[in-house]
């Protein structure tokens, strides 16, 4: 009830206004949400529609949203034209490993940046944030040379090592950790709990929404990464789904219908993950009973 009151600044408060006005507000909220949702779903609807067309009709204007002769065969072609299953597996493997590693290393570092005092902390943190500012296009050649020195080119390990230690993850989690009241941590310290104990038994349980956020962001980023696999993976059996999608784009033309069919199939794990982790956005401090 409290959240409803504070956050519905667009609608009106129930306690003071009449029930009628409250209902009007709700109605307007829903109307706005439905219109917005329609615009958000347009690319999805277009992808579905395009995936069922012949390639020559994909970009025809005005758009025929419901194809008169749906080409269901596009969905079987994608599995035979390219080794889609292998690519799917490779993407899944990379996404799971990188996301888990990033969650571990980032949350560890973020705790130190947020809640521990040590010399050089602020400068180090600025270096982390600053590193995000440099476009990858600039340092990808030096990075590639370095990877060749380690003899890691054309292996999954190269991508794992490049993406497992992200400055973004540290920054994101630090901002969440910082907002957890110090009183809780100090109370634990007085009880003789070590910093590791505090991290595992207090910080992590309290940070589920943040960890869920990072999981979603990292997974989506790794799953959709194109440039990294493009440069580091040469062997056909190591390639990922995003490289597979580009195989339908050829030198003199592209099979956009197949691309969209494959892109939709590749979206399924991402959407599933999002739905799975959603519940954490309604379960924070507010509902875990810890109130400082």
């Amino acid at each position: 009830m409290e959240r409803l009151l504070t956050l519905s600044f667009l609608s009106t408060s129930i306690t003071l206004r009449s029930l009628f006005k409250f209902k009007m507000g709700k109605l307007l909220t829903y109307a706005a949400l439905i219109i917005l949702a329609f615009f958000m779903l347009l690319p999805f609807l277009w992808m579905v529609s395009a995936s069922l067309k012949l390639d020559k009709d994909v970009f025809r204007f005005p758009i025929e949203w419901i194809p008169s002769k749906p080409e269901w065969s596009n969905y079987t072609t994608i599995w035979t034209r390219i080794p889609f299953m292998t690519f799917f597996g490779n993407s899944l493997k990379l996404t799971v490993i990188i996301t888990l590693l990033q969650l571990c290393t980032s949350s560890f570092a973020a705790y130190a940046f947020a809640k521990l005092k040590f010399p050089g902390r602020d400068w180090l943190f600025l270096a982390y944030v600053g590193s995000i500012a440099i476009p990858w296009q600039v340092y990808m050649v030096p990075q590639f040379i370095l990877m060749r020195q380690f003899d890691l080119v054309d292996s999954h390990l190269s991508l794992i090592l490049l993406q497992a230690f992200s400055a973004f993850g540290v920054f994101l989690l630090r901002q969440f950790f910082v907002s957890i009241p110090d009183d809780i941590l100090d109370a634990a310290r007085i009880d003789g709990m070590s910093e590791y104990g505090i991290f595992f038994r207090i910080m992590l349980p309290l940070s589920k929404p943040a960890l869920a956020t990072l999981t979603i962001f990292t997974s989506v980023a790794v799953w959709n990464d194109f440039m990294g696999p493009l440069i580091y993976l040469n062997s056909q059996n190591l390639k990922t789904i995003q490289l597979g999608l580009r195989m339908f784009i050829q030198q003199y033309g592209a099979d956009y219908a197949l691309i969209m069919a494959a892109a939709l199939v590749s979206l399924i794990p991402v959407i599933a993950l999002f739905l799975l982790l959603q519940r954490f956005f309604v379960e924070g401090i507010a509902s875990t009973g810890v109130k400082g």
Binding site: C104, F108, S131, I145, F165, A167
Partner: peptide, 17 residues
């Protein structure tokens, strides 16, 4: 707390950068 991330970050991102 920082080192697991810092080592990887230093070698694979900061140095090329």
């Amino acid at each position: 707390f920082i080192l697991p991330n810092l080592i990887g970050f230093l070698i694979f991102t900061l140095i090329p950068m």
